[in-house]
Design a protein around this nucleic acid. Structure first.
Lengths: 246, 246
DNA sequence: CGTTGCGTTGAGAGGCTTCAACCTAGGTGG
DNA sequence: CCACCTAGGTTGAAGCCTCTCAACGCAACG
C-alpha cells in the first residue's frame, strides 16, 4: 500500500517520495550518511552567529531550529526529523541567523557543500527531490506561521501533532496513530507561541476530549480524524502526492 | 556610500547585493523583466490549488502570500516588494499550497521555468545571488514566525516597519526614514496575527510615542533607532552584508 | 536523601478580542 | 452639486483567552 521501499535510510525514504530514484541514486544518498556523529540531548548543533560548517542531515532523533530574544524567550521555528536537512545552500552565508538544537539524542551527518554541489549537478533526480524537499520545508514554515497567527491554543497543538504524524509516517517512524515525541511541555510552548502552563492545560483538554494520550515520550492519537478536524488540518502543503492521502 | 549601482531594475538592485554581477548578467536580468503585466489592487495573482503558471517576479507595487482558514481568517505570510520573486522551483509542484494577492497595483513578470533553469545553469553568479535571495526569504519567514510567536502587538508592528525600511531601501524605494506602505489596518492585522481593532490601537500608541507617522499610504518613522529598539530588530537575517549596516 | 527538572493546579491580572457604534473620505449616480 | 454608499479608521465596553506568579507533587539521579 505504501510507495516507500524498505530502505532503512530516512533520507532515501523521504526523497524517493519526491522522485524516481534508481539503485545508484540510493547508493549516493547512503554515501551521504556514511560518516555520522551522535549528539546528546539538549545540545546546540549550530549557534546563531556561527560560520556554517556544512549541511546538517538528521538520521535519528529530533532537532529544532530556534531563535532567542534578549529577554530569554525562545521561538522554535522548525522540527528536524530523520531525513530532514538544514538549508542546502547554507554555505553561502557568512553567518547563521538562527540556531539548531537537539530535543533528544541524535545521529547526524555533516555534508560538505562541495559534495552536495557535485551530487546536485550530476544527479538530476536527487537534485529534483531535494528541491521539492526544500519547497516543502518552506511550506511547512508558512503553515507554522498560520498556526501561531490564526489558531487558538488547543488547535495549534492539534495541528502540530497531526503534521508530525504524517511527516514521521513518511520515514517509517510512526504507526497508524502514534509516535515518539521527545519534547517537554515547555518545548511545545516555545514551538506554539504559548506558555508551558497553558500548554499543560491545553494538553489536558485534548486528553479530556479523548483525542490524545501523551505519557512518557509517546504520543498516541486516539481519534485521528477528530484531531485533524479540530486543527483544520489540510496536508496539501506537505506535497506528499499519492503517499498516505491522510 | 551605497553599493548599488544606479540600475532602475529592482531585481538587479537586489541581486547585485548578493553577488558581483557583470554587465552581461544585468542584461540577462533585464531580459527577465521585458514582458510585464499590470495587475490591479486586491486581485489574486495565484490562488491556493492552482497549477503553478511560472515564477512570479514583482517589479512595482506590493503583493503578499497568504492562506485562509475555513472561518474566513486570513494569515499573510510574506510581503513581495519590487525585486522579490515567488519560489524559483514552484514549477515542481502539482498545485499551489497558498495564494498570492496584490496590496496595490502591481507590475509583474512571469518567468518560464525553462528560462530560469537555463539562466541558473549558464550564469553562476546570478544563480548564486538567487540562492542567497531564497535563503533570505526563508530567514524572513522565520523572523515573522518569531514576530507572531514571541512579541506583543506594538513590537510586532515596530518590527515589521523596521524590516520594510531596510528591504525597501535596498531596491531604492525608501528614504532614510519613510516609504509607501499601501496597506489597510486590516491587512496589517492579518499579517501580525491580531485584529484590526487592536492594530488601530497599537498604531495610535506608536504615534503617541512619537515613533511613526502613518497617514494616507505613507509611513514615516520619526525615530528610527527607537523603533528598532522597541522591536529588538536585528537585521542579520536579511544578510545585507556591508549594505546599510542599519 | 536532597536536588533538579518537569508536570500539575490555583488565583489573579492583563493583553487582546468581540461587538457595536460612529466618523470621515472618496466614489457614484441622480 | 449634493445625496447616497461604501470602505476603512476610530472609539467604547465587556469578556475571554492566555499569561504571570506561585505552590506543590513526583520521578530520576547522584
Amino acid at each position: 500500500m505504501t510507495q516507500n521501499y524498505s530502505s532503512t535510510n530516512p533520507l532515501v525514504r523521504k526523497l524517493e517520495g519526491f522522485a524516481r530514484l534508481s539503485e545508484a541514486d540510493r547508493a549516493v544518498l547512503d554515501g551521504l550518511c556514511a560518516s555520522t556523529e551522535t549528539v546528546p540531548t539538549h545540545v546546540d548543533l549550530v549557534c546563531e552567529g556561527d560560520v556554517p560548517r556544512g549541511i546538517l542531515l538528521v538520521l535519528e532523533g529530533m532537532a529544532f531550529r530556534y531563535k532567542m530574544r534578549a529577554n530569554g524567550a525562545r521561538q522554535i521555528m522548525a522540527y528536524l526529523v530523520p531525513g530532514d536537512t538544514g538549508d542546502l545552500d547554507v554555505g553561502l552565508l557568512d553567518e547563521m541567523d538562527h540556531g539548531i538544537g537537539t530535543f533528544s539524542t541524535c545521529k547526524v551527518a555533516w555534508i560538505r557543500p562541495e559534495t552536495l554541489a557535485g551530487i546536485r549537478q550530476n544527479d538530476p533526480e536527487i537534485a529534483r527531490a531535494m528541491r521539492m524537499s526544500t519547497l516543502v520545508d518552506e511550506a511547512t514554515l508558512r503553515e507554522w506561521l498560520m498556526n501561531v497567527g490564526c489558531r487558538v491554543a488547543i488547535e495549534r497543538l492539534a495541528h502540530l501533532f497531526s503534521e508530525l504524524l504524517l511527516r514521521l509516517s513518511v520515514v517509517g517512524l510512526a504507526s497508524e496513530n502514534s509516535y515518539t515525541l521527545p519534547l517537554s511541555q515547555g518545548e511545545l510552548a516555545d514551538t506554539t507561541g504559548m506558555t508551558n502552563v497553558h500548554v499543560n492545560r491545553s494538553l489536558m483538554e485534548l486528553r479530556r476530549r479523548g483525542l490524545i494520550q501523551f505519557s512518557g515520550k509517546t504520543l498516541t492519537i486516539l481519534d485521528v480524524p477528530a484531531l485533524k478536524a479540530l486543527a483544520e488540518f489540510k496536508p496539501n502543503y506537505l506535497h506528499l502526492g499519492e503517499r498516505r492521502a491522510a
